[in-house]
């Protein structure tokens, strides 16, 4: 490689780049930023643009943002009707609230199941620990969609559970589980549990066990020590896990579509229907933008909390 560095053009180019502030370090760190810019920020702007236009029949199915009224007169039309419609129509409000409820309950359930799991994995002997972590991650090796479909086979009226219970004589007729809220919660908790367990595992693993011994030594019972020492010191993991479950769960579409009742209102489903059934792109975009804003603020608050936590834990 040294001979390349010695070449005149190479030296000229690197000198120039450095003059613009481009060095090896900035080049490497800029890759994810570029990626996010191209595939997140630019699409976001496009969706934002569509959300403030009006619907029309044709291709594309929305009005252009900028038209030329005359040769030099630019006509910029920002249509806020989509947003006011979202606010006025109870359908969207209910869908949002229901999504937040489902995501919130699922997150709490994931935390209640995930925390003991993560704690248990940390406390097993090291040889078992990696195996258990592998088992947590194992579902990722199969398609998410397939796993949700598999639950249909388990939950449906003549599915695995009902057949088993009926053959054992526990029940006479099948319990309706598929297309209920129960199935949606089950599906979300099942699918997102690993996202809860893994950050919790890393947080709990870092916990210094002598702190719990110190608490016990100072007269603190184990249950109380858990809430006064373990929980505050693993808060980063709890917050991270909850965000990783809550955020995708709010916009979840596949699980309620496959396992939930047809009339169950989840914002992801509403979005889908606006896009593909009603072909109302502007409304669908407004739904998406509103969902994003709804999520961004709690995330920002949580991140601030987490930042403070990190500061005090060093």
């Amino acid at each position: 490689m040294a001979w390349i560095r010695a070449l005149g053009p190479y030296r000229w180019a690197t000198g120039r780049l450095r003059g613009w502030g481009v060095t090896g370090r900035t080049a490497v760190t800029s890759v994810p930023y570029l990626w996010l810019l191209l595939f997140f920020f630019v699409p976001f702007l496009i969706v934002l643009k569509i959300s403030v236009s009006g619907i029309r029949l044709g291709m594309p199915p929305y009005d252009p943002l900028v038209t030329w009224a005359a040769a030099q007169v630019m006509d910029l039309r920002i249509n806020m009707a989509n947003y006011s419609f979202l606010w006025e129509d109870a359908l969207y409000r209910n869908a949002y609230l229901n999504s937040l409820l489902v995501a919130g309950v699922s997150t709490v359930l994931c935390l209640l199941i995930g925390y003991p799991m993560a704690y248990g994995i940390v406390r097993t002997k090291p040889s078992m620990r990696n195996l258990l972590l592998l088992l947590v991650m194992l579902p990722f090796w199969t398609s998410f969609l397939l796993r949700v479909y598999a639950w249909i086979g388990i939950l449906k009226n003549n599915g695995l559970i009902n057949n088993l219970l009926m053959s054992m004589g526990v029940i006479d007729e099948p319990i309706v589980m598929l297309q209920t809220n129960f199935a949606v919660y089950l599906g979300i908790v099942y699918s997102y549990l690993p996202f809860m367990v893994l950050p919790l595992y890393t947080a709990i693993e870092k916990l210094d066990l002598s702190l719990l011994e110190a608490a016990s030594d100072l007269g603190c019972r184990p249950t109380k020590a858990f809430f006064t020492i373990t929980v505050p010191l693993t808060m980063t993991g709890i917050v991270a896990g909850c965000m990783l479950v809550f955020i995708p769960a709010v916009g979840e579409f596949v699980i309620p579509a496959l396992l939930g009742a047809p009339d169950s209102l989840m914002i992801g489903r509403v979005l889908w229907e606006e896009f593909f059934n009603n072909r109302d792109w502007p409304i669908a975009s407004a739904v998406a933008i509103a969902m994003l804003l709804l999520l961004v603020f709690p995330i920002m608050i949580l991140q601030r909390v987490q930042g403070k936590q990190m500061e005090s834990h060093r």
């Binding site: 210094d208 702190l211 016990s216 030594d217």
Partner: peptide
């Protein structure tokens, strides 16, 4: 007797101060 009931206190080598 469990540690939290003993009339004994311990100073840990790592000090084990609660960081939070």
């Amino acid at each position: 007797m469990p540690p939290y009931e003993r009339p004994v206190n311990m100073m840990f080598q790592s000090y084990a101060l609660f960081p939070h």
